[in-house]
Design a protein around this nucleic acid. Structure first.
Lengths: 225, 225
DNA sequence: TATCTGTATCTTGTATACATTATACATGGA
DNA sequence: TCCATGTATAATGTATACAAGATACAGATA
């Protein structure tokens, strides 16, 4: 369709490139909780000056991914079991809102996309590549928030989801869970198709509940080590 | 209790002072939607260099209060009827979540504070000072989100609330609404007291619905001018 | 030995200088 | 008259220089 779709990062201001880079590094665990973010160090590593680094850090601070200590600088925020429960508590409410609104507002095409996404997710679980599965999962959920037509909601849900990317791979890799995940997605799909808010909401809640269990148990494992 | 409670802004980094200043200016309407934020201009006006100005703008950008246009700079975000409906749609869900969690988790002291806050709000409406009423309103809602014990939820609700501070004063000044507001607060209080989630949730929803009506009608008025 | 203090060093906080790009306006040609 | 193009201006994007506070460690003192 568009042969010129090159990497748009080339045209972003450095601060945004740095912001995306650092964020990804934090979310994937390359930068570990508690690790200090020293400006000159990062500037050398990324080959830019301190200015874009600083501006990126300001944004990460507001997103809650780093915490600032005055006159000492920034460090990667710790993720505690409590903070994760807090995030999931909010996300549960917003995911429920999303599917309810989707029931009201989704278009014919949206519904078709959603069905395709369900099938593609199921297909992805047949393969072994966790990142493919993760992408299929993201796409499916994106279709739902897009169907709400609420930009703010989409932004918030995405932000909250990203906070747990680190832990996502674990329950996505766990093959014994795949059938359950497919069924949960199916149930959400059916709920939206039937425009049955109650059913869709319940399914969304269950979906989050299961994620929460999986992630929390993983955190406890990590803590013991 | 603490005689040394001086203005802590003295000790904040300039970027935070600037951030708070600009944010307040936007939320109170001193900086109008569409108005450009030019760095040198602001730097001169506030008597600082461009660096803290830029860092403050990065944070405002992430908060959605300003939008960035590449190589052109920042301007105050426009608030459309659509964007306001989007924000309120999310806030409705989070306010409902807040009161439901408060039903489960509020302490004895919290409940007492809440009752006091209700009374103080009613008292404030007797006076003519809109900012006093607004503060009483903020305090009341703060007690509720605090009762949830969920920091993330608190942060998000506060952020979403702030987006409408500009319009708040209108329905707060409208004396004919005061009795209604007091009754709505009372109903939320009663719901939480009775630990009746359904009742509290319904009251919270009604509270937002009424705000929405009031603010939307005001925006339509402004648009006509 | 323990504690305090002073200093060296490192890091952030702030200001400023330089590079690059967008905008406005004037000038010329169709 | 209208449009295109060039140039001046002004803004942002980036880098660097300078100021000031925090940390660590050595040495002095009790």
């Amino acid at each position: 369709m568009n042969d010129f779709k090159i990497d748009m990062d080339e045209f972003l201001p450095l601060r945004d490139v740095v912001f995306n880079t650092l964020r990804k590094a934090i979310l994937t665990g390359q930068l570990k909780p508690g690790e200090r973010l020293m400006e000159v160090h990062l500037a050398n590593k990324l080959g830019v000056s301190r200015t874009p680094i600083r501006e990126a850090i300001r944004k990460l601070e507001l997103e809650g991914l780093v915490i600032m200590i005055p006159r000492r600088g920034a460090e990667v925020a710790q993720i505690t079991e409590k903070s994760l429960k807090d995030v999931l508590e909010v996300r549960r409410a917003l995911d429920v809102l999303s599917v309810e609104l989707a029931c009201e507002r989704i278009t014919q095409e949206g519904m078709e996309e959603l069905e395709k996404a369900c099938q593609e997710f199921a297909g992805a679980t047949k393969g072994k590549d966790a990142s493919v599965i993760a992408m299929a999962d993201v796409k499916l959920h994106d279709i739902i928030v897009d169907a709400t037509g609420n930009q703010r909601l989409k932004q918030l849900v995405n932000n909250l989801s990203e906070q747990m990317y680190r832990y996502r791979f674990v329950y996505i890799k766990d093959e014994s869970q795949h059938e359950k995940l497919i069924a949960e997605h199916r149930e959400i799909y059916e709920g939206i198709l039937a425009k049955d808010k109650e059913r869709a909401a319940t399914a969304a809640r269950t979906h989050i509940d299961n994620q929460e269990k999986s992630i929390i148990s993983q955190i406890r494992l990590e803590k013991k080590r």
